[in-house]
Amino acid sequence: MQRTRPLPDCHPEFSVIQWSSFREYRVENWRLARDGSGNVVRGATSWGWIDLCLPVVFSFIWSRFRGSTMLCAFTILVVGFTAYCRCAQVLHESVLVFPAYGIQLETHRGYPSLKPFFVSRRFIHASRLEDFIINEGLRRWNVRYYLAAVHGSSTDKITIDVAFENILPHFPVLLEVYQGVQELMFYNHTDYMHTRI
């Protein structure tokens, strides 16, 4: 395994991990501040002082209003929801490229200092993969670029799966991933049916 960071100055959250049989393009859920200060802006946060106060508030309410079922149930719901939100944060998203087999889009969720609790994977077989594109979309008043895998389904419909759909990295990261996927999946293999000239 060899890990490189092709954009270390402006996008150190992006890394390329080269394995013997596949390549992983990973974007972690943090970025550098755009003001040039070099500060890290975290997307996935660990426990803060508010989270540490929740057990104290919970124990206070529990001891005072033990007879009030509604208030205790509400408190348990608030504490449970807060714990779930902390443990279901997006830690990183990846595009794994298996030349001649297909691509896999992954989202890893969990608590920042632990292993991921939830991992969602979508595999797109090479025989169904039509193209891997950079597209643009509108989000409120902003134009955002995103990567998408265009593939056919079993009912001959065209389906689009968005890569990095939660983190939405900036264009230089998308361009690196796009070029890598195009090189490995479409241009590198002469026996593949979608080879381009």
Rank of each mutant, 00 (worst) to 15 (best):
M1W: 05
M1L: 08
M1S: 14
R3C: 04
R3K: 15
P8N: 03
H11F: 15
H11C: 14
F14I: 13
F14P: 07
S15M: 12
S15R: 11
S20R: 13
S20T: 10
F22T: 02
E24H: 10
Y25M: 08
Y25C: 06
R26W: 04
E28W: 06
E28S: 13
E28L: 07
E28M: 02
R31D: 08
L32A: 06
L32Y: 03
D35W: 04
N39W: 02
V41I: 15
S46W: 01
I50T: 09
L54T: 07
P55G: 05
P55D: 00
V56C: 08
V56F: 10
V57R: 04
S59T: 14
W62G: 07
S63Y: 12
F65V: 08
M70R: 12
T75F: 13
L77P: 03
L77I: 11
V79W: 15
F81K: 07
F81I: 14
C87V: 09
V97D: 01
E106P: 03
Y111N: 01
P112M: 03
S113T: 11
L114E: 07
L114W: 14
F118K: 06
F118S: 05
F118W: 15
F118I: 15
S120M: 00
R122Y: 08
E130Y: 05
E130N: 09
E130T: 11
D131Q: 04
F132I: 02
G137Y: 03
L138G: 01
N142I: 00
N142K: 15
V143F: 11
Y145L: 03
Y145T: 01
Y145S: 10
Y146N: 01
A148L: 01
A149R: 02
V150T: 01
H151M: 00
H151R: 03
S154G: 12
S154F: 09
T159M: 12
D161N: 10
V162C: 08
A163T: 03
P172Y: 10
P172F: 07
V173W: 04
E176C: 13
Y178L: 11
V181Y: 06
Q182G: 10
Q182L: 13
E183T: 15
L184H: 13
F186T: 11
Y187S: 13
M193C: 11
M193D: 12
R196H: 10
I197D: 10
I197L: 13
